[in-house]
Design a protein around this nucleic acid. Sequence first.
RNA 1: GUCCCCAUCGUCUAGUCGGCCCAGGACACCGGCCUUUCACGCCGUCAACGGCGGUUCAAAUCCGCCUGGGGACGCCA
Length: 463
Amino acid sequence: MNVVTRFAPSPTGHLHIGGARTAIFCWLMARHYKGQFHLRIEDTDLLRSRQEYTDSILASMKWLGLDWDGELTYQTQRMDLYRQYVNRLLESGQAYWCSCTTEEVDAMRQKAKELGLKPRYNGHCRDLHLGPGEGRCVRLKCPQEGKIVFDDMVKGRIAVDVSELDDMVLQRADGTPTYNMAVVVDDHEMGITHVIRGDDHVSNTPRQILIYRALGFQEPVFGHVPMILGSDGAKLSKRHGARAVIEYEKDGLLPHALVNYLVRLGWSHGDQEIFSLDELVELFDGTHLNPSAARFDVNKLQWLNAHYMRALPVAELARLVRPFATEAGYGELSDERLQGLCTLFRERAKTLVELAAAFAPMLVSAADLAYDEKAVTKNIRPETKERLQALSSVLKDCEPFEAEHLNTVFNDFVKDNNLTFKDIAPALRTALVGFMGGSHLHDIMAFLGREETLARIERTLSL
RNA sequence: GUCCCCAUCGUCUAGUCGGCCCAGGACACCGGCCUUUCACGCCGUCAACGGCGGUUCAAAUCCGCCUGGGGACGCCA
């Protein structure tokens, strides 16, 4: 099957997760069928469009790993094309000039509303055969009866009576095309076979189909993916926390975790939850898309993220946390040390930010280590101090000072002194990291090194 | 107001065109095991077919109505 899809964001904001998901679906669809995936910037809203948003969207696409084919298309650069097609409709009598003002049209709508009817343009200029002129727009001469029916990839068959539609504006009084006109011309010109987009466009689809027909274009297959709701079921907004993919990047999520999560939100393959990119490309054929809206669940996203963080090679994980470690102010860290820290804490963090935060106690000097008061009062007592003191002298001569050996030495120490782990481990942990957390004791000591380990125990003895 | 769409555990979902579903998986929650903390891992518990009718020997699966949610009705995209 020949498949050409496109993602067409308008640069009025960063790429948000809803848009990201439809972009992923489009990309997957194209890759699965070995077709093409295009990117088109719908920047006809001159007031709200900004170059920085285009840049941000492109950056997010790249971060997610969504590459596109061919050159970027900017709608503002194709104004002549749209006008050409509008003229064609004018010439064939399928469109007409309209001199009604916005106020007049508003009044018509208001009146219809009061009568309990659908607010529509009443076709005032439809048969006036007006020519071009100041303040005049171009409207499509829509059929007056019949139904528009299309088979949506995700929603199934959708039918709308044309009486629901009115003679929509194709070209504004300033000569620029309206959204519906530009989209149809572009999708046709770009050879798009599958238009996959947000749910909020289903009501535009019958209108666009009318334009396709008037122009004699072949209609593409439409697929409307439902929107993503906040965890409370309401439309995603600022108060739901991160919504732009750039924010998830800052929160320390792995791009593939986000991709996996987003794809699974609204699409399924039996009971499978974890998918590699290759698997997604192989399995995503545009079927099994869920028609209902889904709520965004941070817990599951983080679970996936933690899963992928554990699965990553340490060197790769270290490379990814580095910017976060720098951001946390740890200064220069060698690759080796960073990797050591990653192996120490990778199973305990859900995000790169959390991972980097876990490094903190390991990177200060004994004198600067902060203690959790509760841990100290509970674990650092006269009798435990004595034990720490004894352990300290054993550690002084422990050779080599490496994890595995330290583990043996510690076990022997416990046995030789007729202790249980509870008699000494909590105290040692408090001494080493300042609170009841962290990683395995022998791993911590090995990372800290002999000198620092002894210094930390020493400092605890004077608490 | 009018039109369109949606409806399975708290959440994401499985449920290939009715029977194998007194509904399966995953996240979260709770409990247990493991254990020198916290995790990871493993095991287990709790938990859903919105309501009412209809079709059928048989319905989560088909039909209708109701209810609830969402979207659209711009010379925005």
